[in-house]
């Protein structure tokens, strides 16, 4: 059974409309799945601040999300975390690592998000999430994820220093050209699977995201990848960084894409 956990507090957001994007995505999923989401945090305007400021500011929202994820797993449910930014995964991934130590994390994102305080040029917290969860720096929200559990899917825009860290750590990478359904199926094997999606992984023009880059997935390509993941292996899903258009009517098409893409994952799950 799924449980919907929704971030509505600012977590290092540098642009507005991703909190609204999470809200719209959550409402769509409530309708599609017939369940009621749990909402955490209070929306605040975006601002460009350094991770040293945005991380403590997001403390409460992250703590609530982490507790909700843990409770959901404890109750044998499959959490779906809908978040404004990837930074929310600072809360979820350590819990994943603790509860599912054999799980594979598919980090479906145009970027590596593997910077540390020493390598980040932008100071953006969202670019440091995976490295934090893997213990390369201390976010204050836990660690424990092993780099060999992580597969970057669709990554194609990676900083030089970040690249060196990824290489040293042994994180596996499937650029869009290699992220075929078969390749993903082989990579996850029979392990439990936790999927994180940053919508910037898509080809620009389908689902608005703040940091989108060319050469991404078409909606049907990502749907086919998710179709390839054996039924019952999914133990958690995260959807982040949908930049909601200014009018709800403009949101219809991207929301439809989102639902179509993740639909193969929403079949009734089995316990892994």
């Amino acid at each position: 059974m799924f449980e919907l956990i929704v971030s509505q507090g600012r977590i290092a957001d540098r642009k507005d409309r991703t909190i609204e994007g999470a809200l719209q995505t959550a409402r769509m999923l409530e309708d599609a799945l017939g369940l009621k989401g749990k909402y955490f945090g209070t929306p605040e305007p975006a601002k460009t601040d350094d991770w040293t400021l945005s991380l403590p500011e997001a403390e409460q929202t992250l703590a609530c999300l982490q507790a909700a994820i843990a409770d959901s797993i404890e109750a044998s449910r499959t959490p779906i975390m809908v978040a404004n930014t990837c930074s929310a995964s600072l809360a979820s991934l350590p819990t994943l690592a603790e509860r599912y130590p054999e799980a594979i994390l598919l980090w479906v994102d145009a970027h590596g998000d593997f910077n540390t305080p020493d390598t980040t040029d932008s100071g953006y917290l969202g670019g440091m999430v995976l490295a934090g969860a893997c213990g390369l720096w201390d976010s204050g929200h836990g660690k424990g994820l092993r780099p060999d559990q992580v597969i970057l899917v669709g990554a194609r825009d990676i900083d030089a220093e970040e690249l060196a860290q990824l290489r040293r750590s042994g994180v596996r990478i499937l650029p869009p050209e290699e992220a075929t359904p078969n390749a993903v199926r082989e990579a996850v094997g029979k392990a439990p699977v936790w999927i994180h999606v940053d919508w910037d992984v898509m080809e620009p023009g389908h689902i608005p995201a703040d940091y989108s880059v060319p050469h991404g997935f078409l909606p049907k390509q990502l749907r086919e990848i998710f179709q390839a993941i054996p039924s019952g292996q999914l133990v958690g899903l995260e959807l982040a960084e949908f930049h909601a258009p200014l009018s709800e009517s403009e949101s219809r098409a991207p929301l439809k894409h989102i639902l179509s893409i993740i639909d193969p994952l929403l079949e009734p799950e089995a316990v892994v």
Binding site: I173, A187, H215
Partner: peptide, 25 residues
């Protein structure tokens, strides 16, 4: 956009199967 050569070193590449249509990076 960049994917540096060493990022795609042999030990990190999950598969050798690639799509026919390939991006410049």
């Amino acid at each position: 956009t960049t994917i540096a050569n060493d990022l795609l070193s042999t030990e990190q590449r999950v598969t050798t199967s690639v799509t026919v249509l390939q991006s410049q990076p």
